[in-house]
């Protein structure tokens, strides 16, 4: 097998290994536990929870 072939083979084997390593890291790091916190991450002060944003097609209120 050519050197490139060996490289590709190891690359292909490394992918699932890296994926499992990431999963392990995520579990140890608590990434899989605090779902509450994870779910709230997109929200911040400027575009807070419980407030719809991007309602720019609201013509009625635009004309009023």
């Amino acid at each position: 097998m050519s050197p490139i072939g060996i490289l590709l083979l190891f690359g292909a084997m490394a992918v699932p290994v890296v994926a499992l390593a990431c999963l392990r890291w995520a579990a140890k790091n608590g990434q899989l536990q605090n779902g509450d916190r994870g779910a709230l991450l997109p929200f911040d002060l400027e575009e807070p929870l419980d407030k719809a944003t991007d309602q720019i097609l609201n013509r009625k209120s635009a004309k009023s």
Binding site: L40, P42, A52
Partner: peptide, 14 residues
């Protein structure tokens, strides 16, 4: 990202 962001509600089940 955008569905929760626009409607202002977190994702159903993280």
């Amino acid at each position: 990202y955008f569905i929760p962001k626009v409607i202002g509600r977190p994702i159903h089940s993280y």
